[in-house]
Design a protein around this nucleic acid. Structure first.
Lengths: 160, 160
DNA sequence: TATAAATGTTAGTAAAGCCTAACATTTATA
DNA sequence: TATAAATGTTAGGCTTTACTAACATTTATA
């Protein structure tokens, strides 16, 4: 049976993502640290934790630490995965500057569907296994093209 | 001198985009029609038009038609362009189903930076001009790969 | 251990976007 | 042209997500 998924807002997704990243570093997250990373004030975090507690996505007791439930961790990972794939696409295929790529990925991770996400992964797999002769050059050539405007000729012969 | 750009919310961007598309068909847009396409009620549209009037992005007089100012039209076009490029990427490169692609593009158009937008256009230009021998096959091969799992061999010889 | 500093919570407020219900205007028709 | 139907507006309320100011608890230190 499927979870009746009430879609989370981008904001709440960001909270989960940030809590997850803090917990990876420090085991647990504190209200103040979440606030700093989210660039909001403590009371906003409190309100969000109340909401996420009710949805059973985080654990939080008064004056205590915050941590993710299994359900919360699962969602956080999904968003992080979307972020990573988008970041990879932006930096390794479009050759976007890392700063901008990270910012764009942060926005787009909330917009991209699961379908497109898995398709992007397949696209990477396809490119990695690639065509026999020219494949590895294609994306490198794009980088050269961006820098110089020059197009590198494929170094193989047409067969017929 | 640059406009001090107060970034519009995705919602307001959607209003501009929809007004633009209605005006293309009917010359002018009416409140009720905007409401229908935005899937909201009339009073929500009224409130949005008040906001957009103050920002000088639309014209609207009581009980009258709605139309875009030049500034409003410019923004609407920018968003539409982002939508179109994303849609093209999703359908022509990732081979995503048109329905899903349109939905994803609608979300992502608000998230993608100008920088990434122009880079995507360059990417298309690069692919279209392409490598001499194998290029046109690459993306078609991806489609085959998605359907059959089979990888089509490049039909040219390595040169050395 | 008593007090100061750091941290967290509660209460009340605001802006963005949505809603319904009631009212106003415009357009179409008898 | 008087009235009905269609369309648009105003008023008031709700949710989300943020804020500040005041208060509570925990931790660190004299």
């Amino acid at each position: 049976m499927e979870d009746i998924k009430e879609k989370l807002s981008p904001t709440m997704e960001d909270y989960l993502e940030i809590i997850s990243s803090i917990c990876k570093e420090n085991k647990v997250a504190r209200i103040g640290e979440i606030a700093k990373k989210m660039e909001v004030r403590n009371p906003s975090v409190n309100a969000a934790m109340k909401f996420l507690c009710e949805k059973e996505l985080v654990h939080h007791e008064k004056y205590g630490f915050v941590s993710l439930t299994n359900k919360g961790q699962k969602i956080a990972s999904e968003i992080q995965d979307k972020h990573d794939v988008l970041y990879k696409f932006l930096t390794e295929i479009l050759w976007i500057d890392k700063r901008i790529a990270d910012k764009d990925a942060c926005e787009m991770e909330h917009a991209i569907s699961k379908h497109t996400f898995t398709r992007l992964i397949k696209f990477f797999k396809f490119l990695e296994e690639g065509l026999v002769c020219c494949r590895p050059k294609l994306l490198q050539n794009f980088e050269t093209y961006l820098k110089t405007g020059e197009r590198v000729k494929c170094n193989c012969k047409k067969q017929e």
